[in-house]
């Protein structure tokens, strides 16, 4: 039995099945990310004055990733336009760039994650707090590249640009100087467990990265193993490219909002 409106549009709605399906799916995605954004607002507004961290993320990396996703968005739409003009070789080239961009985005994101897992906050017995990237650690000492946090000064930081002006230097801390609480050393990296900000950062960007992986797999399948459909049913194949592109643009759209909210504010 042949399913109707697989490649041609239904006369009353003007839509083929997959297009209606992807928009309903994207509606559910809006609610998913909307729920997480409202959680972010709740946590951010509910934080004590001066308690919300600023300038923890690398803006340059975030900006490069934004540009990478924007480039992938235009290559997706150009690939679709190429198919509509029956230009198969251009389609293949554009989608290859899209796939490279998706890999580049994930590589940069994993570098950022690695940076956070190497970024430590250490509470000292004299009440000071050292914050920086771990350079060296042995039985006697811990060496960080960072700065000491003054709690009163830190509470006055309300913008990312203020945090970026802090001078960083090499700090050597003896193991005996690290505060011990309930038999556990007060030395923790900036993983999702560190504070509320890191928890929501990893949740939002992790979920977004999963969407990038999912989108890239679908685009890659249509581009590679699924490409034989172009010979048997070119119109349906073009629709598949359009639908996967709509999902990809949504992923780009989410990042456009995530970038300023997490990196710049």
């Amino acid at each position: 039995m042949e399913i109707p409106y697989n490649s041609t549009a239904r006369p009353d709605t003007g839509l083929y099945n997959a297009k209606l399906g992807i928009w309903l799916f994207l509606a559910s995605e809006v609610m998913l990310f909307g729920a997480l954004f409202s959680s972010y607002i709740l946590l951010r507004v509910g934080a004590e004055p001066g308690a919300w961290p600023h300038g923890l993320l690398n803006v340059k990396m975030g900006m490069i990733n934004t540009i990478v996703l924007i480039v992938s968005s235009i290559t997706v739409v150009m690939a679709w336009a190429s198919l509509r003009m029956k230009n198969w070789s251009n389609y293949k080239k554009y989608q290859a760039v899209t796939l490279i961009c998706s890999l580049l985005f994930l590589c940069i994101k994993s570098l950022e994650y690695r940076d956070k897992f190497n970024h430590y906050e250490i509470q000292l017995t004299d009440g000071r707090v050292a914050d920086g990237h771990l350079l060296e650690q042995d039985a006697d000492k811990v060496v960080l590249h960072g700065h000491y946090i003054n709690k009163e000064e830190a509470a006055k930081v309300t913008h990312a640009w203020q945090e970026r002006e802090v001078k960083e230097e090499e700090i050597s801390i003896k193991q005996s100087e690290i505060k011990v609480d309930n038999g556990r050393k007060c030395m923790e990296n900036y993983g999702p467990w560190h504070n509320t900000y890191m928890a929501i950062y990893f949740t939002l960007t992790g979920l977004h990265a999963l969407h990038v992986i999912g989108g890239a797999l679908v685009i890659g399948f249509i581009w590679g193993p699924g490409a034989s459909m172009w010979k048997t049913d070119p119109e349906r194949y073009t629709n598949r490219v359009e639908v996967s592109g709509l999902f990809w643009h949504f992923v780009d759209l989410v990042w456009i909002v995530l970038f300023p909210v997490l990196y710049l504010l």
Binding site: T13, G14, W23, S73, V77, G245, H249, D252, I256
Partner: peptide
Amino acid sequence: LVAGYFMHLISEKKMI
């Protein structure tokens, strides 16, 4: 810009 032009929402069908 992304939704309007890349996702063609500026000229989509009523059902969307």
